[in-house]
Nucleic acid binder design. Structure first.
Lengths: 302, 302
DNA sequence: TACCAATCATAGGAAAATCCTATCGAAAGA
DNA sequence: TCTTTCGATAGGATTTTCCTATGATTGGTA
């Protein structure tokens, strides 16, 4: 497809500048015959005489004169490409697309973002909030660099690193007598009034797993798509709901709302960060996970 | 100096388009391991992961995405350079710098130029009129592509091809009784009044060679620098001069001027075309010479 | 679960490209 | 004519590139 080589262009350039095979060869760090034969080969491949060899002088042909600036430019372009690539983005710089599930994002991000901004100001974090299935899909197909969700994640090709456990609490109306004396046993009949997020949120499945024996109120009819909305519904006495620990600390300040613990062992979920197993720069993901794990545990607890 | 190769860029391009090592290799006409190892080598040299290899899918890294258009452009540029050079200017096209001595130019060019224009309309002939020494110098150093002059030329590095002989005649005042009965013998005492062009013109030396025993009138004092001027001086009865055959046909129509032949064997000079022995496209010079030689001999004769 | 198909990496030896040293031949100057 | 300079050529060594065969991993399927 392409006949000439970079080497030939380099030798051509050296010869065009020196007009002397010996000096061009020395400048190129090869022997004179090596340079001679490469130039000859180049002329052969281009089917075009480039240099006139005289007894004492070497002269460029018109064709060579026309080619020289273009070849110089090509060489410069190649050097540029190499320099750009080789410089190697120094980890934690440039764009990083991170997905987070909705039941974690609003509670974790306020703590993570300032810390990231401080440690890695050059990192341009692009955030996407979506349910786990969507995040898994986007990450596997390269539309995201990594995501934060709750274990378990079962997708081949992804690798997950545990970040921290997130215990579940119960959010109940302030004066509800059914929860007068916490902790609450998971099999409490009062959990019949459990309200859940719409399908797709992993918190829904986790809540069902915790309170295995209840027939929860279908939330679709209420249109509750966010945990905040759900908590406001609880505050209005429409029912109760499960809140993760992170959210609970925020929910604790809402009026007419009470956060009560479950009996030991307290149910919990494991929050993790995940990315493609074959991802080029795993170090960035690992570093990001390290930072999140390193956040003062207090900020994530009730 | 430059680490990556054109081959690597080609393979990179193929892989970037197919995202499949096997197909990229097939498209590139090599085996899959060959392509794999060249890509690996390229990543090594750039110190930068370019592709993520997954079980079933290959994905480009951000770096590779950034590099791809630049590499494509470089490859296109190289192909352009090759196409340009390889197309090979089809001989007798483009600029051709031709020098001619002043005692030939005005008589030969009117015949040559129309013919050239007809046969090779794409040829851009640049003409320079100068004395032989100057033409030799300019041609040897590449400022001219070829020149037309009279033999002998003694300069190493030049090659000359004979074009045609140019016989010498004598231009005399119309009524001059000394030349009443031509042909004129070279040793005629009437040649004492021979006038010559200024130093540098080969015709001067040639005339002296023909009339070896005369002490010619120094022309410098008259300031005659062109044959036409010289002929007008002859017409005014200031002396006689040697005219080459080509000029004679033009001079024949001047009033008060007579063109008379020399005795056999008629003296002559050989007009030739010359160029650098190492010149790249000798074929153009040879072709040009062929055309001039092919001109109807009649146009060059008395 | 265990096999199967697809895919990229690795190994080892062959082929090709490139280079080096030594030498030749032409050209230009002494 | 002799010498010096310089590019071309020759022959063999070295490096690069390639191919075939095989291994390892992944993702789907019986």
């Amino acid at each position: 497809m392409i006949g000439i080589t970079i080497r030939q262009m380099l030798y051509f350039d050296a010869l065009a500048q020196t007009l002397h095979f010996g000096r061009a060869a020395r400048r190129s760090g090869v022997s004179q015959p090596a340079l001679s034969s490469q130039i000859a080969e180049m002329e052969e491949r281009l089917n075009c005489r480039l240099f006139e060899r005289g007894g004492k002088t070497v002269r460029m042909t018109d064709e060579a004169h026309a080619l020289q600036p273009r070849i110089e430019r090509i060489l410069a372009d190649i050097r540029d490409v190499e320099a750009t690539a080789r410089r190697g983005r120094p980890a934690m710089e440039g764009r990083f697309r991170l997905g987070i599930i909705p039941t974690v994002a609003p509670y974790l991000l306020p703590h993570v973002l300032p810390e990231l901004k401080k440690q890695y100001p050059a990192l341009q974090l692009e955030l996407r909030e979506a349910v786990t299935a969507s995040l898994v899909d986007d990450t596997a197909s390269g539309r995201l660099d990594a995501f934060i969700a709750a274990l378990p994640l079962d997708h081949p090709g992804l690798v997950a690193q545990e970040l921290f456990p997130d215990r579940f609490f119960l959010a109940v109306p302030s004066g509800d007598p059914a929860f007068a004396s916490p902790p609450v046993p998971p099999e409490s009949p009062a959990l019949e009034r459990l309200m859940l997020l719409e399908e797709g949120h992993c918190l829904r499945e986790q809540a069902l797993a915790v309170c295995g024996n209840v027939r929860p109120v279908a939330m679709a009819s209420y249109g509750a798509t966010s945990l905040t909305t759900l908590l406001q519904m609880v505050a209005h006495g429409l029912g109760v709901t499960l809140v993760p620990e992170m959210a609970a600390s925020a929910a604790g300040v809402m009026p007419d709302l009470r956060i009560v613990p479950f009996q030991e062992p307290m149910p919990q979920r494991l929050i993790c960060m995940a990315w493609r197993r074959n991802r080029a720069r795993q170090d960035e993901c690992v570093e990001l996970a390290r930072i999140i794990r390193g956040l003062d545990a207090a900020v994530l607890r009730v």
